[in-house]
Structures are given as C-alpha cells and as structure tokens.
Computed example of a mutant assay.
Amino acid sequence: MLIDVQPTMKALIANDLLGYLDMDVKVSIASCFSEIIRITAPDTLYNDDIMKEIFRPIVGDFKNLDEISRCSFSKRVSILETVAKVRSSILMLDLDCNDLIFEMSKHSDIVFSSMETMTLILEETESISA
C-alpha cells in the first residue's frame, strides 16, 4: 500500500500545493496530509523538515473550526479526529514543533466553543432522538 501512496505523497509536498492560498484547497491538502500520517503511523515517510511544514496547515485549520457553515467544516473535524487518533501531537513534540503546539493550544478554546455550539444546535433540534 505504501508504494501506491508514494506518488500522492510526492505531489502533496510540491511547493505550489503547500503555498496554495484558497482556504478550501488548503483544508483539502491538510486532510490528505493527515490521512497519510494516519496510514503510515507510527512511521513517518517524510523527513523531519517536511513533517514540520506539513503540520503547519493542519494546525492552521483548527482556528477555523468555528466556521460551521463552510463546506470544508467536515474536513476540518475529520483532520482533528485523525490528529487525535494517531496522536500527532506526540510526533510534533518529537520534531520540536513547539510553536505549533503553542498555536494548537490557543485554538483549543475555538475548538471547545465550536463543539459547544454544535451541541446546542443538536439539543435544539427536535428530530434527533437522545
């Protein structure tokens, strides 16, 4: 399977993709990176410098978790779930991504606020059973 993923992995680290400005495209790219990290965990197939650059868009997407109405919201939630599931924060610590860890901790308020908003919406919806 890793052989099949190699072309995608190489394409995703191309400079034009890592620097893409459109927010929805950035989220899609971060989603692909988080899935590659999930598939290859606990190993990393990129070098340390590239992994640090990969984590930037992933962590950056957490700050927009309060934008529930955007079409990329479900991808952001999926990225968050994957980061938690494969314990990417441990890898970030191993790579000395302290600035990203700090940035991620700043986003936690937004994440919790977004989760509270979603919970309130669900509680107000009568068509969903407990």
Rank of each mutant, 00 (worst) to 15 (best):
G19N: 09
T40F: 10
D48M: 10
D61L: 00
D61E: 02
V59N: 01
M51N: 05
I13E: 05
T40L: 09
N15P: 00
L65H: 04
V25M: 15
V25A: 14
A30N: 11
Y46Q: 13
S28V: 08
I39W: 06
E35I: 08
A30T: 10
A30R: 02
F33R: 04
Y46H: 15
R70I: 03
N15I: 09
A30Q: 04
D22A: 15
P57H: 02
K63T: 07
K10L: 11
P42S: 06
I68D: 03
I58Q: 07
A14G: 12
I58F: 00
I50H: 03
L18G: 11
L17A: 13
C32H: 12
R38Y: 03
N47S: 12
F55A: 10
T44K: 08
V59C: 13
L21W: 06
L65Q: 06
M23Y: 11
I39H: 04
D61W: 00
P42N: 04
R56H: 04
R38C: 07
D43L: 08
P57K: 02
D22R: 15
K63R: 14
E67L: 12
S28G: 11
E35G: 07
E35A: 09
V27L: 05
V27W: 01
A14H: 01
M9V: 10
T40S: 11
A11D: 07
C71D: 14
R70M: 04
N64A: 08
A41T: 13
K10W: 08
D66T: 06
R70L: 06
D61A: 03
A41L: 05
A30L: 00
Y46V: 13
L65E: 00
S31A: 10
I39Y: 08
C71T: 13
S69F: 01
R70P: 00
D43W: 05
C32V: 04
L45E: 03
V59H: 05
G19M: 13
V25Y: 11
N47D: 15
I39F: 09
D49F: 08
S69D: 14
F62T: 12
I54A: 00
I50P: 00
D66P: 05
I54N: 07
F62I: 02
D66F: 10
P57V: 09
